[in-house]
Design a protein around this nucleic acid. Structure first.
Length: 421
RNA sequence: GUGGGUGUAGCUCAGUUGGUAGAGCGCUAGGUUGUGGUCCUGGUCGUCGCGGGUUCAAGUCCCGUCACUCACCCCA
């Protein structure tokens, strides 16, 4: 075999399509219930949009982007996430002039050049929900609830949010200084990765999985105790709203996010079956992002959810999607006259919206044609041979019951259209 | 970028102390005269990831390389 897929790129085979179909359908349904409208930004954007939007010191920007120069010598990048692109189209198309909040969702592929592993691919599919122009924690509740309701309706049990607040530009810098000072005191006790994080991304210190770092993390200052009044109020109100609506959550002081734009609320939903990549969705508030991108100061909140991860977890938990439409009629035939008639009838059925297959070739045994009907899970097999043509009938076998009857040719289409109603 | 594991038919895998390939599933044809799902029988399918080395002889040992996979990093 000469060609194979590129590392980290995955084929979605027919067997998996029912999962996709189902998730997409639920997503469209539920976003509509909450009044969110679909928006599709392009995959390719100016590279600087992501550098500015995601943060120039993040891993995503530093080493994971699919960036190249196009034929006009412009640096372009295949989106590594949705939010920056959605913000760009929000500003470019004047959505920020509309009544607030502006509530949007998207779905499509995103690209990150990472080493693939369970639940992590270089191309994966996200759906993304964004709500802009409102600082009320009610909006946090609403956005989080979309994820909640979607997973619940897909059949996930025991859902719970991981929840934290990462403060804002007023209170976070002071907390980070406190955290750094604490870690300086314990410098000899922490792992090499943490020594690096201390300089580059101190919030991630809390997230380290190395055994020897755990005692240090356990005693570390907790951000939710260092929030300003505004952030504190926001956080406690959100928790109250979550309680009120029965959304389970656990406050996770270690939950921090890798993108620079998050403020106040951050959350994830965890799931089983996706290896160590346990977040099925992740998101939070980004009250400074739009201004950062050159727009008017506008609060916002959103999340992304990886569809491949949802599917992995569904499989792990034995959640089956509804089957796609199955075949109703399989048309078997013997002889040229019968084949001509079979073609006519098959296409007439299809015209009526009845799923129908017809056997290919001309000299196949009835036996093998019946096997094919069975393999395709057809409900009925229609058998046409010289006898039937002569008598002006079609033999119809019910493959579930095993019974067989003859239908007059003149009644054939009506017979099936009535049956399939 | 770092570390562990694995690479044999379309799929899941077996291959014993080195002697030049097997099973199940699938696909296909049959089990008498035009009928499926169970059962039985036959058939189809492999440069044993790739390159080099040791050997009379390598799927089996050694080296390299690539790919896949799991984990770290990071993230959906």
């Amino acid at each position: 075999m000469k060609y194979k897929s590129i590392t980290g790129m995955r084929d979605v085979l027919p067997e998996e399509q029912p999962y996709w179909r189902w998730i997409e359908q639920k997503l469209h349904e539920i976003t509509q219930i909450y009044g969110y409208k679909r928006i599709d930004p392009p995959i390719l954007e100016e590279t600087s949009l992501f550098i500015r939007g995601v943060g120039d010191t993040t891993d995503i920007v530093e080493k994971e982007m699919y960036t190249f120069n196009d034929k006009g010598d412009n640096s372009v990048t295949m989106r590594p996430e949705f939010t920056a692109g959605v913000m760009r189209t929000y500003l470019q198309n004047g959505l920020h002039m509309q009544a607030k909040p502006v509530k949007l969702y998207s779905m499509g592929p995103v690209f990150r050049y990472e080493r693939p592993q369970a639940g992590r691919f270089r191309q994966h599919t996200q759906f993304n929900v964004e709500a802009l122009g409102e600082q009320d924690p009610l909006l946090d509740l609403e956005v989080m609830s979309i994820a909640w309701q979607l997973y619940a309706e897909l059949g996930f049990k025991g859902l719970a949010f991981q929840l934290n607040s990462t403060g804002c530009s007023k209170c976070r810098p002071a907390y980070i200084e406190t955290l750094k000072a604490y870690y300086q005191e314990h410098y000899d006790e922490i792992c090499d990765d943490c020594k690096r994080r201390l300089g580059k991304n101190p919030l991630r210190l809390l997230d380290c999985k190395v055994e020897t770092c755990q005692p240090v993390i356990a005693q570390a200052p907790v951000i939710s105790e260092h929030l300003c009044k505004e952030c504190e109020d926001h956080f406690s109100t959100l928790k109250r709203y979550l309680d009120k609506t029965g959304r389970a959550y656990s406050v996770n002081h270690k939950l921090v996010r890798g993108l620079d734009y998050y403020t106040k609320t951050v959350f994830e939903v965890w799931a089983q079956g996706i290896g160590s990549q346990n977040a099925m969705c992740g998101g939070g508030r980004y009250d400074g992002l739009i201004e950062q991108l050159g727009g008017p100061s506008t609060p916002g909140i959103g999340f992304g959810s990886g569809i491949e991860r949802i599917i992995l977890s569904m499989k792990e938990q034995g959640i089956e999607p509804p089957a796609l439409k199955s075949i109703d009629v399989f048309m078997a035939h013997m002889g040229e006259n019968a084949k001509d008639k079979a073609i006519e009838l098959t296409f007439a059925l299809r015209q009526q919206g009845i799923p129908a297959l017809i056997s290919f070739g001309s000299d196949r045994s009835i036996k093998s044609q019946m096997k094919e009907a069975n393999r395709n899970n057809a409900k009925y097999a229609v058998i046409l041979g010289d006898q039937e043509i002569e008598q002006g009938v079609a033999a119809v076998k019910d493959l579930e019951e095993g019974t067989q009857t003859e239908i007059k040719m003149a009644d054939f289409i009506d017979h099936f259209t009535n049956k399939m109603k």
